[in-house]
Design a protein around this nucleic acid. Structure first.
Lengths: 230, 230
DNA sequence: GCAAAAGTGTTCGAGCTACACCCATGT
DNA sequence: ACATGGGTGTAGCTCGAACACTTTTGC
């Protein structure tokens, strides 16, 4: 299976979401890096890089993410592969796009070190290549997924209150949710389990803390919500 | 963005589903081609080939599909990209996998011409590379998708009875469906529209023929059920 | 005591399932 | 006439939306 290969460059880029305080509310942000070479010199782009000769695709996503932003995501899944022949003006580039979530403290830790700007998702425009499109698609997928899969917990720490989890969902979906119904839906789904601890220091009644339950099928050949394990 | 590129070979393969008569019922089948060179010489594999230097990914999928099987799919979407460094014993190959549907007459037309075997989906085993995995994942996705998206119509002709459409769903899901409820669900969804014609020649009351309704958002930048347009 | 979030209960309606039943056709 | 798939009606269940209400804390 060697011989027919063609000279396309293989890249990987990642759309990373996190929650940051913005105008008094938790809102979805993503990190952008400014390009320092042609094409699109000076424009902002998604973090990424070339795929190494001896690494898997997800591995490449993690490596380039660490190199360009220093981030270690708590969730990472393949999103889509873009390969229009004209998407880069300097030659054929096929990009495997990953989608990731990082917890806020991790994002804050990195913000001061690297040349990274955290942009609110709805203010992302004018990115290099077709990255505007990529971001819109990643956001659409995240919003769809938060409805049926346990992804939101990856934006929070080990334990969390149901109010905090609801705020995450609200930030992702961009609309308020009924606290009572949200609580019932989440607890009934079995996706979280109660701990004995409560969150103190708040201004009101201390909420019980919960922990995410690791799904059953996660050890099988396929993660049925994210794609094949390969 | 030239210069860092790495020497990975870029391939495309397609999992194609169609409906064929098998043991008295319509069942899902897919075409396999027998390899005539190393690696996996003599084994069966998914149709595919190398991606050309000046074609899009979907374009490459259509071309290789035509070249190896002669098939023209009525539906085609990107499924997943596989890139484990060791998935081919002869060197690094990254494969973009597409999932396709073809109508039965098209499948029958091609079956006699090319070196293609149509295998019932649940008897597919021992394929080259990681193609067993790929098929299992494609099937899982198709079954999930048939529940919320209008994909089944691509296995039928221009017009069809609701009984035929139900048979398609039953073949995909592998279980019987209540005819009354299926009819109501489909008509209420607005995914099909009634024609004035009826299917004659059957042994019983002639069913009304329906036509698939092209979804609204299909002209926008994204097809919200399949992925970005790019 | 008061404000506000945590947490519980209840009602309502949409949508799905199961199943009874009528309709129209070929044999 | 009758068998069979096409097509309609309907009762019951589940689940989510809306919202009233009680509980527990800080101030």
């Amino acid at each position: 299976m060697v011989g027919g290969a063609v000279a396309a460059s293989l890249a990987v880029s990642t759309v990373i979401f996190t929650l940051l305080e913005h105008e008094g509310a938790q809102r979805l942000h993503l990190p952008l890096v400014r390009r320092t070479r042609e094409p699109f010199d000076g424009a902002e782009a998604l973090p990424g890089g070339w795929i190494g000769g001896d690494e898997g695709l997800e591995e490449a996503a993690r490596r380039t993410l660490a190199e360009t932003t220093g981030l270690r995501p708590s969730y990472l899944e393949q999103l889509y592969t873009f390969g229009r022949p004209d998407r880069s003006p300097t030659g054929r580039v096929v990009s495997v796009i990953y989608s990731a979530l990082v917890r806020s403290p991790e994002a804050a830790r990195v913000a001061e070190v690297h040349n990274v700007r955290w942009a609110p998702v709805d203010e992302v425009r004018g990115l290099a290549f077709d990255h505007d499109e990529v971001v819109a698609y990643a956001l659409w997928r995240l919003r769809a997924k938060v409805g049926y899969a346990q992804v939101a917990v990856h934006l929070l720490g080990e334990t969390f209150s149901l109010g905090q989890l609801r705020e995450v969902h609200e930030a992702v979906l961009g609309r308020p949710l009924d606290p009572a119904n949200f609580r019932r839906r989440v607890t009934a789904s079995g996706a979280v389990e109660a701990t004995d601890e409560h969150l103190t220091g708040g201004r009101h009644r201390p909420p019980r803390l919960y922990r995410a339950v690791v799904p059953e099928g996660a050890t099988g050949p396929f993660q049925t919500t994210a794609g094949p394990a390969a």
